[in-house]
């Protein structure tokens, strides 16, 4: 425990850590008794990494993301974000969060949806305009500034929500199955764009998914999780190059990593239910 406290000020290697979880656990009190959503999660995510969390539903991958975001509070263990507690990190606007649905406000235009966090932070109008333009360009939504969310397709809405998460320039991006509701072709396209965006901005990304190809294609590291209680069963370092065209998914290297992820998922899966 002492380690985590020291890490923020200690060696240069530790300063590289964005998220550090030690023996992290979370138990929900429900009407049917306590449910252990997370147990004994030990994980360090370093600056500039693209980490995917994969596992069957109920394995706690979303819960872990929500703990990082201070949307849930852990009941055991320690977690620090940039050396701060999750609450301090949230107050410091250390991360952008992309939800499963776009969650755009229908009464705001796309540009004012993207500008919402900037308004809350209290940036000047000029600064807001400048950042809205930059992030809208980044997600290829220029020209749709004055549209309302309901006038856009699902894929464009999700891109707008990514732009909103990027707008205030947090170094950490938390994405909770952002493309889960989209069709295969749109999803491929957005995956490609997300990789390009990650290389351009050099952000740290935590990405929750239940698609093996998506996890392998995007990540530098894949965290395989299993349910009841939610825990980490395998952490796989990707050997794929940073430059990844879509057809890399047919390469033997890609398939080998995918096979290992699948094995990890199978091992962690209980067949009792």
């Amino acid at each position: 425990m002492l380690m985590t406290v020291n890490q923020a000020t200690a060696t240069s290697v530790d300063q590289n850590a964005v998220v550090e979880a030690r023996k992290l656990g979370l138990t929900f009190q429900t009407n049917d008794g306590p449910v252990r959503a997370l147990a004994d999660v030990d994980l360090t995510i370093n600056k500039g990494e693209f980490v995917s969390f994969i596992g069957p539903s109920g394995c706690g991958k979303t819960t872990f993301l929500r703990v990082i975001a201070d949307l849930e509070q852990p009941t055991e263990g320690k977690i620090s974000i940039n050396g701060m507690t999750p609450e301090q990190a949230r107050e410091a606007r250390a991360y952008g969060y992309v939800f499963q649905a776009a969650a755009l406000f229908p009464w705001r235009t796309i540009e004012s949806n993207v500008g919402l966090p900037l308004e809350i932070i209290g940036l000047s109008k000029a600064e807001q305009q400048e950042r809205i333009k930059r992030t809208m360009d980044l997600v290829n939504l220029s020209g749709f500034e004055k549209k309302y969310p309901w006038q856009l397709s699902g894929g464009m809405q999700q891109r707008a929500s990514i732009a909103r998460a990027l707008a205030f320039d947090a170094d950490l991006l938390l994405m909770d199955e952002p493309f889960g509701a989209l069709d295969e072709i749109v999803r491929d396209h957005l995956n490609e764009q997300l990789l390009r965006l990650w290389r351009q901005t050099n952000k740290t990304i935590c990405f929750v998914t239940h698609s093996i190809p998506e996890a392998v294609y995007l990540s530098t590291r894949i965290v395989v999780m299993s349910p009841r209680p939610g825990r980490v069963t395998d952490v796989i370092e990707s050997t794929l190059p940073t430059e990844r065209p879509l057809d890399i998914r047919e390469s033997p290297e890609f398939l080998a990593i995918a096979a290992r992820v699948r094995d990890g998922l199978r091992a962690g899966h209980s067949y009792e239910d």
Partner: peptide, 18 residues
């Protein structure tokens, strides 16, 4: 208002009035 939208405002550390 939906849970997701309220969580979103929380991630921005938005205060009650905002």
């Amino acid at each position: 208002s939906g849970h997701m939208e309220r969580d979103l405002m929380r991630t921005y550390a938005s205060n009650y009035w905002q």
